[in-house]
């Protein structure tokens, strides 16, 4: 498998507190990978470790197949990032900030700077001081800085923070466009599932510094369990009828008077018709679809496999 980032046993302990514990992360080339976890779950710390801002207490990090250490950081040339919030030399202009960035990376292409600013809709602000920018503009400028050198991987920590709804949509479109047209892989983090759902291909669920699961969003969608919930005063007879008349076997009784039918071979209409025919009173009948939110809630609060 062509992984551009792989960690094994990645651990970070600061002053006796475990911030990241035994994380085995796998990011494939070309994918948009989303870190999902509550505030303080360890997303930012992992991102800082991946970009060399922190050094791990234990474990290894491989970036583009090269082990990342303080002495060997050359693979970071292929990575663009914004961790926590976009940081700039506020007393300098947007262009001066971009030029400093390019100088550090040994990249000298002025047209690439103008092109990057175009992509994030920040034309005409080159000579303005960054201290006069709104947070949204800084976020865009941060993205522009991250994409100038056309890195193969961009790491963005909470990229929609501080953006208005239009800005959020623009950011999403930009990420998708860079992924599709330029083949840039992304590692994004968010505590908002809805955000992730719209851009990510794969999700890594993080809780209390541990990576609980890495899963394709498409797979979760397929796995979503739908069921029909039926509330009746005569549960026993209803179950008997469902089994014998409609050949339904996959069901469960909850809270005494509720039947959850997971076998959806029979429609709601057929079930109610059959029960009415046999004088079973139906107090309530509803079709339930478990949401992605339910899935991740269960992952975080119900444990889950540790990757």
């Amino acid at each position: 498998m062509d992984y551009i980032i792989r960690t094994s046993g990645l651990t970070k302990i600061v002053k006796g507190k475990t911030l990241v514990s035994n994380v085995n992360l796998h990011i494939k080339k070309g994918e948009i990978y989303g870190f999902l976890g509550q505030n303080g779950a360890g997303k930012t710390t992992i991102m800082k470790l991946l970009t060399g801002l922190l050094s791990p207490t234990a474990g290894e990090i491989e970036v583009f197949g090269q082990r990342l250490t303080e002495e060997s950081k050359s693979s970071l040339k292929r990575v663009g990032s914004i961790i926590e919030y976009p940081i700039f030399f506020e007393h300098l202009t947007a262009m001066e900030n971009l030029m400093i960035h390019c100088e550090y990376l040994g990249f000298y292409d002025k047209s690439a700077m103008a092109q990057a600013l175009d992509m994030v809709h920040l034309e005409g602000i080159e000579d303005k001081l960054v201290k006069d920018f709104s947070l949204g503009m800084k976020q865009r400028l941060g993205i522009a800085r991250a994409i100038i050198t056309k890195p193969e991987l961009i790491i963005l920590d909470e990229p929609t923070n501080g953006l208005d709804p239009i800005g959020i949509k623009d950011m999403r479109d930009l990420i998708r466009m860079l992924n599709k047209e330029y083949g840039i892989s992304f590692l994004l983090s968010s505590h908002i599932l809805g955000e992730m759902e719209q851009v990510a291909d794969r999700i890594g669920v993080i809780n209390k510094g541990r990576l609980l699961n890495e899963v394709m969003l498409a797979d979760i969608r397929k796995q979503r369990t739908d069921y029909i919930e039926l509330v009746t005063s005569n549960v026993e007879k209803a179950v008997y009828l469902l089994e014998n008349k409609l050949r339904i076997s996959n069901m469960k009784i909850v809270q005494g008077n509720r039947i959850r039918i997971y076998d959806l071979s029979q429609s709601q209409n057929e079930i109610s018709k059959m029960l009415v025919l046999h004088d079973i009173g139906i107090e309530e009948m509803q079709k339930h679809t478990s949401t992605l939110e339910d899935y991740f809630y269960n992952q975080i609060h119900g444990g889950g496999n540790i990757v």
Binding site: K73, S74, I83, F89, E90, H101, Y104
Partner: peptide
């Protein structure tokens, strides 16, 4: 100002 984090994320040793 945390601008040091920019320098530290470049492929140059601290």
């Amino acid at each position: 100002n945390k601008t040091i984090s920019l320098s530290f994320s470049y492929p140059i040793s601290r």
